[in-house]
């Protein structure tokens, strides 16, 4: 954790200093970068990046952008949302601190994801100043997310480890493929929420680091090059590849998260605003946690 923080802060400072010094890409290192492109024994990342970026990334993201919401529409029409009583008792689930942290992350994601899509489909927006503005917004909202990603990771960490309930939850896909109201095996957080947590925090950190590498481009942190054995240009190629692949996971789960909170479970979004979940919702969707709370006499 400390190492990550150090790298992030160090990259901020070193980036400007490194530019004044020797370039890691266009000066003496240029020979290495040219030789590394397709030579025997090299990672051939240049070709891999070109092939994937030219033929697959934008297409796969487009399929996700259209396909995932389409699945939600079908789910909503044929299986319908889960409706729980909002008149019953409420269970305090999210502390004020966790809600503030969540809201900062939420706002940054609401900016990050559309601006990322606009960059990816930049040609459809004509490029130029509008897309540059989106790119700057993408970078600015990363700062907000970068500040809260570690606190977010820490406050929920203890509830996010794999539990036997999660396997059972995954076997029935959380009960979302059936219309019947049956208790679903899950603790305070179900397997779906846990997946999203790991993707948003660990995946999010990968997104921050790879994004920062691409943003600063010509920085000099010898430690990274020695640790990874990559030349600067290959480091950038790895960053671009990881950013696209991990980003896909983040985007898909973000869409799922929004669908669940806003549409699939009626009124579920209120719990992260007020901190209270409906008792009936907890009883069915977080049955193990509900039993535990009952046993402890908290309800």
């Amino acid at each position: 954790m400390k190492k990550y923080l150090f790298l992030f802060i160090a990259s901020l400072f070193l980036a400007s200093a490194a530019f004044a010094a020797d370039s890691q890409i266009w000066d003496a290192m240029r020979v290495q970068n040219i030789l590394g492109y397709g030579q025997e024994g090299s990672y051939k990342l240049g070709q891999l990046f070109t092939m994937l970026q030219a033929n697959y990334f934008a297409q796969v993201y487009l399929a996700v952008l259209v396909g995932v919401p389409a699945i939600f529409v079908l789910h909503y029409l044929f299986l319908g949302p889960k409706v729980f009583s909002h008149d019953g008792k409420k269970i305090y689930t999210f502390s004020l601190l966790s809600r503030i942290i969540h809201q900062i992350a939420a706002i940054s994601f609401i900016v990050l994801i559309p601006t990322g899509f606009i960059m990816m489909f930049g040609s459809s927006f004509g490029g130029g100043s509008f897309v540059i503005m989106m790119k700057d917004l993408h970078g600015l909202s990363t700062i907000a997310f970068g500040i809260i990603v570690i606190p977010m990771f820490l406050i929920w960490l203890k509830d996010m480890f794999l539990h036997w309930d999660d396997i059972k939850w995954l076997m029935i896909v959380g009960g979302y493929l059936s219309k019947t109201k049956k208790p679903v095996p899950a603790g305070k957080f179900n397997a779906g929420q846990k997946t999203w947590y790991w993707m948003a925090t660990l995946g999010g950190m990968i997104m921050i680091l790879t994004g920062a590498a691409m943003y600063f481009l010509d920085f000099n942190i010898a430690m990274i090059n020695t640790m990874t054995g990559l030349s600067q240009i290959d480091l950038l190629r790895v960053s671009a590849l990881l950013h696209a692949v991990v980003g896909l996971g983040v985007v898909i789960l973000f869409f799922v998260h929004i669908y669940m909170a806003v549409f699939a479970i009626k009124g579920a979004i209120n719990s992260i605003i007020t901190g209270y979940k409906e008792e009936e919702e907890v009883e069915y969707l977080h049955s193990s946690w509900y039993k535990k709370l009952k046993k402890q006499g908290k309800i």
Binding site: I25, G46, T50, Q53, M119, M214, L217, L236, A240
Partner: peptide, 9 residues
């Protein structure tokens, strides 16, 4: 937009 992808390729 100065994204740098051409350099990686």
């Amino acid at each position: 937009i100065g994204c740098g992808y051409c350099l990686y390729a």
